[in-house]
């Protein structure tokens, strides 16, 4: 019994986890007034998508996609590669977002959306 099958989640259950994560992230983005927290939410949201991709790469009974004698079934490596790219993009987005928050803080003196809106309307 290989490690993979032992820890294998029933796929539908896994999708539920992804969906729940996604919605949590999405909710934070929409509902939170704090600009930093919004970015945290955005990250959760993105991570759930990374998980979605990684789960789809799994092939039942397959091992890590490294050529090895005696192994005929490999997991699909492509989603991992895609997600590597997506993670890089995600990091860049987070960095940029946080940088913007710093600038917003410098300009408005707050990172709370409500306060910023009030200040914007004054201007």
């Amino acid at each position: 019994m290989s490690l993979e099958t032992e820890f294998y989640f029933p796929s539908l259950g896994l999708y539920w986890i992804i969906i729940v994560l996604m919605m949590i992230g999405f909710y934070i983005v929409i509902a939170h007034g704090n600009l930093v927290k919004k970015i945290v939410g955005l990250n959760v949201f993105q991570v759930s998508v990374f998980l979605l991709f990684i789960t789809m790469g799994k092939v039942l009974g397959g091992t890590a996609p490294i050529l090895k004698e005696g192994v005929s079934t490999y997991s699909n490596p492509l989603p991992h590669v895609l997600i590597l790219t997506a993670i890089v993009v995600g990091v860049a987005t987070t960095a940029l977002g946080l940088a913007l928050v710093v600038r917003v803080r410098e300009a408005f003196g707050t990172v709370e959306e409500d306060d910023i809106c009030a200040l914007e309307n004054d201007a």
Binding site: V49, M56, L96, G97, R103, A123
Partner: peptide
């Protein structure tokens, strides 16, 4: 204008959600 910052920030949030939706679709 300092509102450019918040505009960029909001666009970043919305744009990232859009791009993420797109990538979910591709997935």
């Amino acid at each position: 204008d300092r509102r450019a910052l918040t505009a960029a920030y909001r666009y970043l949030i919305v744009g990232t959600i859009g791009a993420t939706f797109y990538i979910i679709g591709v997935g």
